[in-house]
Simulated scan of single mutants.
Amino acid sequence: MPTRIVIADDSYLIRQAVAGLVGDEDDLAAVATVGDVDALLAAVEQHRPDVVVTDVRMPPTHTDEGIRAAQRVRDAAPQTGVVVLSQFVRREYAVQLFEGGAGRRAYLLKDRVAEAGQLAHAIREVARGGSVIDPLVVEALLTPAGGDRRLGRLTPRELDVLREMAAGRNNAGIGEALSLTERAVAKHINAIFAKLKLTEEEQVHRRVQAVLLFLAAS
Rank of each mutant, 00 (worst) to 15 (best):
A140K: 03
V34Q: 05
D134E: 14
A116S: 15
V37P: 03
V53C: 01
L97P: 06
L213F: 04
G66N: 01
G23T: 00
V161Q: 07
R104M: 04
Q96T: 06
A70G: 12
N170D: 15
T80C: 08
A17V: 12
K195L: 13
E176H: 14
K195F: 05
G101L: 09
H205D: 15
D24N: 10
E45G: 08
Q209D: 15
E202I: 08
V211A: 13
Q96E: 03
I192R: 10
V44C: 01
A186C: 10
D148Y: 14
V51H: 01
L198C: 06
G129I: 01
D24W: 04
E25M: 08
V95N: 00
H188D: 00
A94Y: 02
K195Q: 09
F214E: 10
D24C: 09
I192N: 07
P2D: 04
A17I: 08
L119Q: 08
R169A: 11
R48G: 03
S131L: 09
L109K: 12
E158C: 07
E200F: 07
R105I: 03
E115T: 15
E115S: 12
T80D: 02
A177P: 12
A19H: 04
A70N: 10
A76T: 13
A30K: 00
S218A: 09
L119T: 12
A106P: 02
E92V: 10
S131R: 11
L196P: 14
S131A: 15
A184G: 08
R15S: 02
F98E: 05
A172F: 13
N170Q: 11
R207V: 09
A140W: 04
A39T: 04
L136H: 15
E201V: 13
F214P: 06
A166H: 07
V44M: 01
Q96Y: 00
G168S: 07
T33V: 05
G147F: 04
R104L: 00
D160Y: 10
E25L: 08
L40Q: 01
G101H: 05
V89S: 05
E158A: 11
L178V: 10
M1F: 00
R15D: 09
R112P: 08
V83A: 02
P135F: 14
L141H: 03
G101S: 07
K197C: 13
Q71A: 09
I174T: 08
R128K: 14
A77R: 11
T61P: 02
R104W: 07
D10Y: 07
I192A: 04
G147V: 11
K187S: 14
P60Y: 06
D148F: 13
G147E: 06
E158S: 08
G129W: 00
D27A: 02
S179F: 12
L40G: 01
A106S: 04
F193Q: 02
L142R: 08
L13K: 11
N170H: 07
A30Y: 03
F98K: 05
I67E: 03
P60C: 05
P59Q: 08
T63P: 02
D148W: 14
G101Q: 09
A106E: 02
T33R: 05
D55R: 02
R112I: 05
L136I: 07
R153E: 14
Y93C: 06
V22D: 01
E139T: 14
A184F: 06
Q96R: 14
L13Q: 13
A43F: 03
D55I: 00
G146S: 15
E164C: 13
V83H: 03
I133E: 04
Q46I: 04
A39G: 09
